[in-house]
Simulated scan of single mutants.
Amino acid sequence: MDIDLKRLRGDMKRLKAARVASPIGKIKTGATEIIRSNFDELERLHREDGATWTEIASGLAAQGVTQGKGQPLTGRRLTALMHNIRTRAEKLKGKAIVRDRTQILPERSQKDGRTARKTVSLSPEMNRPLGGSVPDQTISEDEIRRTELAKHAHLLGKR
């Protein structure tokens, strides 16, 4: 099946324009950015000065911080924004720690400066052939049973 690349490009351009024009993900009132940039101070006001979230929200609303379609910021919305910002910061911090752990590990290098490759091999017990036979020969299940029985025959007594 052939596709019309010219039409595909046009469709993609149209869909991209619709996505860019969409309100999803765009800054609406700027309240989140204001709270994010003053997060520590708002926390301090709440914890150290004893201000309630409703009082802080009223003070922010008096300075023009709005939510939604120009409505004044409420204590409930401020609490939600603070929680979201805190959660996002913790998530990013966790990712940074994981990223740092991978960068902390030093690379082993060879004498010529190239990075050494780590090779994996079987232990000696796994490398030895069963029953002392040649490795390329196939051993039947019956032979394996007899070999194991012979190893423990002294425990079983006479037959």
Rank of each mutant, 00 (worst) to 15 (best):
A80Y: 10
T119A: 06
R117G: 00
I97H: 14
I97F: 14
R86C: 03
D142S: 12
T102G: 10
Q103C: 08
T87P: 03
R117S: 00
S109D: 00
G94S: 09
K91F: 03
S140C: 14
L122I: 10
A80I: 06
A96V: 09
Q103L: 13
S123H: 11
R108G: 05
K95A: 10
K93E: 13
S140I: 14
K93A: 15
R88M: 07
R86F: 08
S109P: 01
R99W: 01
M82N: 07
I139Q: 14
T102Y: 07
L105S: 09
R117N: 02
G113I: 05
E107V: 14
E90N: 10
A116E: 04
E125C: 01
E125L: 01
I97W: 15
K91S: 10
E107C: 07
M126G: 11
P129A: 06
E141T: 08
A116Y: 02
G94V: 03
N127V: 12
R108C: 04
R114V: 00
G94A: 04
R108H: 06
I104K: 13
R128H: 07
T119D: 01
R99M: 11
G131H: 04
K118T: 15
K111N: 05
E125W: 01
S133Q: 15
G94M: 03
T87Q: 14
K118W: 02
P106T: 01
K111Q: 09
T79I: 10
Q103V: 08
S133I: 14
Q137W: 11
D112F: 08
G113E: 04
V134R: 15
T102A: 08
L122W: 15
G132C: 06
R108Q: 08
P124N: 00
I85Q: 03
Q137E: 11
R114Y: 03
G94W: 03
R101C: 09
S121N: 08
P129N: 01
G113N: 10
D142P: 02
R117D: 01
I104A: 15
S109E: 09
V98S: 07
T102S: 07
V134W: 13
R117A: 03
M126E: 10
R117L: 00
L92E: 14
R114I: 00
T115Y: 01
H83S: 02
L81T: 02
L122D: 15
T87R: 14
D100W: 12
A89D: 15
T138I: 12
V98E: 14
R86N: 09
I85H: 04
P124E: 00
M82I: 09
N84K: 02
I104N: 11
P106E: 07
M126V: 04
E90Q: 11
N127T: 12
L122G: 13
N84V: 01
T119K: 06
K111M: 01
T115R: 05
T102W: 08
L130D: 04
R128V: 06
P106Q: 05
T79D: 14
R108W: 06
A116M: 02
D100N: 14
G132A: 03
E125Y: 02
G94Y: 03
E107S: 12
V98Y: 09
A96G: 07
S109M: 10
